[in-house]
Amino acid sequence: MKKWMAMMCTVLLLAGCGTTNEETAPAKDEKNNQELDKVTVVLDWTPNTNHTGLYVAQEKGYFAEEGLDVEIIMPGEAGADQLTASGKADFGVSYQESITQARVQGVPLVSIAAVIQHNTSGFASPVEKNITSPKDFAGKTYGGWGSPVEQSVLDSLMKVENANVEDVSIINMGDSDFFTAVKRDIDFAWIFYGWTGVEAELRGEEINMVYLTDYSEKLDYYTPVLATNETMIAENPDTVKAFIKAASKGYSFTIENPDEAAQILLKAAPDLDEELVQKSQEWLAPYYQDDAAQWGEQKLEVWENYASWMFENGLLDKELEADQAFTNEFLPE
């Protein structure tokens, strides 16, 4: 989530990006004596359980089966959206939030699969803070990352209970650790339960969650998603289809085999906490596909709902052409 915070602050930089793809020499699958097309996918943040399906597809050979040699790379200072939009990476892990803002500014990012079907984020606080609903935000200090979207989300939720966002003290805590910050500087923060919430369970620290989706249907958006750029879709549709087919297989495996999938992620990122990865993977497994007909599926109404909410709250300069922001055409049939 922290990387998304940074992206929301830098999405304006994307409008100046070009869309050129660099050609690279094909790799070779020695087992099948087959030349593979080299492609890159850039993560939004350091490896975590949002990304497990990609590592499974790589480890299990699903990408190679589709003729691809996929390199998973870190975003660096530029950020995944900027690298993907410019063609410096073929694919990226992104978010409906940032793609919506980017497309309104003319940036050619397109979502090609939903990693998680519903928004699992919310406002978290230690139980002793007694924050159990949006009205309880009043008189408290919220720690965020300095994006206008935060105050708008707080305002939307608080209005449901006739509370006023002006009664909340909002500070920028940047990349500060949630567990340290709530003991020292703030009362609540915005987290993904599947990682930070699970970590709280393992620490034995009880938290209350106020989920966005409990108070607004329009805030049930896709976060994260897999994305590419319009040039990639126009010039290399077979590569996009192959990538999504293998990724779908990777996430489907993860849904059915969370323990083994967690070990694959840990093999790729051994510095991660093993217990946290295992528990997070178990928690997240049912949420990847959830109630969708298949993993990765996206609905127009979800894109329209969130874009209209952003426009109504002054977060977009103009309305989004929602049907251009995403596609289901590359999902396996």
Rank of each mutant, 00 (worst) to 15 (best):
I244T: 10
A262H: 05
M232T: 10
G197E: 09
E23N: 08
L157G: 08
E97N: 12
L265V: 01
A102G: 01
I207G: 04
K159N: 05
T20L: 06
G106A: 11
T327C: 04
C17D: 12
Y193P: 06
E329I: 10
T20V: 12
M158F: 04
F179A: 14
W283I: 01
A247P: 08
N164G: 08
S147N: 09
V153Y: 02
V127G: 01
E312C: 04
W45T: 15
G204E: 02
I264C: 07
G146L: 00
A307Q: 03
M74F: 11
F311K: 15
K140P: 14
E161D: 09
G76L: 07
F178R: 10
V39W: 00
N130D: 13
E319S: 15
L43N: 05
V70K: 09
S111L: 01
D177Y: 09
Q117F: 03
I244R: 03
E23I: 13
P75R: 08
G146I: 01
E150V: 10
P332V: 09
D291K: 12
K318P: 02
D187T: 07
K299I: 07
F137I: 08
A285S: 13
G87W: 01
E35G: 01
M232Y: 15
F178N: 07
A78C: 10
V153P: 05
A138L: 12
L68V: 03
L212N: 03
A114F: 03
A269E: 10
L68Y: 04
A6D: 11
L202R: 08
M209H: 01
F243C: 02
M173P: 02
Y221S: 10
W45H: 15
G204R: 04
V104L: 03
G92C: 05
E312V: 06
M8F: 00
A292T: 12
E321C: 04
S156R: 12
E166H: 05
Q278R: 13
D220V: 07
Q82T: 03
F192M: 15
A78V: 11
A262C: 10
Y55A: 02
D271E: 15
A293I: 12
N48M: 05
G144H: 12
A234N: 11
R103M: 07
G139V: 13
E333N: 12
K159Y: 00
Y211S: 14
N236W: 00
N33G: 10
L202G: 14
S169Q: 14
L300A: 08
A189E: 09
A114T: 09
V168T: 07
S121R: 09
D273E: 13
N50M: 03
E35H: 14
T120W: 07
A247R: 15
T10V: 13
N21W: 11
L36M: 01
K318W: 07
D175N: 14
A307Y: 05
L202C: 13
Y221F: 15
M232R: 12
A89G: 07
K31S: 11
S111R: 04
M74S: 12
S98R: 06
F330H: 00
W195N: 02
K3F: 04
D323G: 02
K245M: 08
T120S: 11
N50H: 09
D290Q: 13
Q263T: 03
N236Q: 14
S252M: 06
G139F: 11
S248V: 02
K279P: 00
T20Y: 07
E304T: 14
Q298A: 10
G314P: 11
Q58H: 04
Y288K: 06
